[in-house]
Design a protein around this nucleic acid. Sequence first.
DNA 1: GCCGTTTTCGGCCCGACTGTTTTCAGTCG
Length: 596
Amino acid sequence: MHTHKNMNNEEVVKLFRAISGAYEIEDESVFRIRAYENAADSIEHANREVKDLWEEGRLGDLPGVGPNIAGHIDELFRKGKVDHFQTVLARLPEAMFELIGIPGIGPKTAYKLVKKLGISKAHGAIRRIKEAARLGRIQKIEGFGKESESEILKGIEEYQRRENRMLLPQATQIAEELQTYMEREKAVEKIDTLGSLRRRTSTVGDVDVAVATKDPSKVISHFTRFPHAKDILASGENTARLVHRSGRQIDVKTEKPDRYGALLQHFTGSKSHNIHLREIALEQNLSLSEHGIRKKGKIAAFASEAEFYKALGMQWIPPELREDQGEIEAALEAKLPELIKKEEIRGDLHLHTDYPWRSAHDTGANTMREMVEKAMELGYEYVGIGDHNPSLTEYNRKEIIIEIKKRSEEIDKLKYSIEITHENRTIHILNTLEIDIRTDGSLAIPDEGLVMLDYAVASVHSSMRIPKAKMTERILKGLSHPKVKILGHPTGRLLNQREGYEADWDKIFSFAKENGKFIEINAWPTRLDLPDTLVRQAIRMGVQLVIDTDAHAIEHMDLMRYGVDVARRGWAEARHILNTRPYSELEKILLTKTQV
DNA sequence: GCCGTTTTCGGCCCGACTGTTTTCAGTCG
């Protein structure tokens, strides 16, 4: 397996899975095998690059990475390879490591296949397995049969066409359509999403749902007639699986209402949350499963999750927190946070309109008035009317100031007319812009333009791959202007497309805290940026955040809920989020009459 | 190989499903 000094998390995960697999073939201690598997899982779920953590001397932050594995990682990034790993891997055919990761193929199967078929080279290994399967050579190998041969073929096909994970809103929409449909069947007493969708992670693999029912067969048969199903993959007594027209799989699991709580808890996960929970249960001689809690051979059933957690002596834990990041300890001490709810949001402070100037970036689809009316429909108390700054190549400095003046007058007119047309309701309209932080840290608008705004959002939109220290300085400089209150989409990540830029978040968060700047949680589906783990870090450091939609059309303003999901995953309470404040408070915080 | 206010030694999550090797190993979540 090729290794190098700049391996990203995905590559490191693959390496560790290979080592774990190699140990499995060699009948190493199951605990050592598991240790590498755990380390791989931990890195896979880390929201930071292992290489960055290594540079900062913080590999120990990764659960499951102890002194030994940390030493190997150190050697990897110093030399580009790990001598010990090379020795271990060299004892086995490299082709087998290409196969690990194909659904249904683990280390043992992979090893047997390449041995028996005489495949040694990694290159083309999957293709050769496929050929062998087509020629019926696999079913002749001892331990395999016709079924397993076609399963392998199916597994490879799935592996090769595996796409990116779904974005949260897509998964949510599929699930909500299904839920509406399922609720039409009277036998369905309760229905909930499961897994990462229920935990509201930013991307989701499959849509899984649980149904509480006394009549599973009715539920299953109703499920298999879902109009948006393209194909039914499996249909058993209590579970079924179909392919949604989007190509995504949907699983349903049924359970009797009086036992539903344990099922819901079990399949919501996360895996690490459940493992930790079982370890704690074990100390009380309890054994947990999807069926309930077993004590001395007797299983107790639970209708609700709340009862399930209560039986373990803890508070019910909101699904968003179930990542084994301290939520279990907090629940045991009844110290879980009071997570923010979307109903607590009182305004949207970062959105775009179709205001007709030659903008540095994309403009919105709706007028200022339409955006404001939508905000009123949503029951907001205030709204920040923003746009990207005027393009620096299209206007000179003087023209930019004139343009901002014209636009400010436009907003004043709007304020006046809205007050007249909606006399019963007041909404506070704020004049803002999203301003580029240029590569040298300067803002794309001169001071004379900035003073006309109520506040500004500053964001990075260019030169995203500059060194970490430079990026940090750049962001700090951009944020330091008194009118700049919000750092927009802080990491610049685009889900399934690009990693965020490298920056020293500790430094930026400290600066934000000391200078009263707000870090944005951008609710745009491909952004969801700040990422949840950084939200948690920011909150621990006492930084204030703001949830914005960055809407470019009125319908985007409905995406606020996904930003709230991210905030909740980061343990945010309403008091941590600027736009839960009433206008009277917001005004004092945001609209300081600072001299520029 | 990791980990720890009951332990720095001695533990380490649980069950379902599947196919094939009739009693269980391998994989998965």
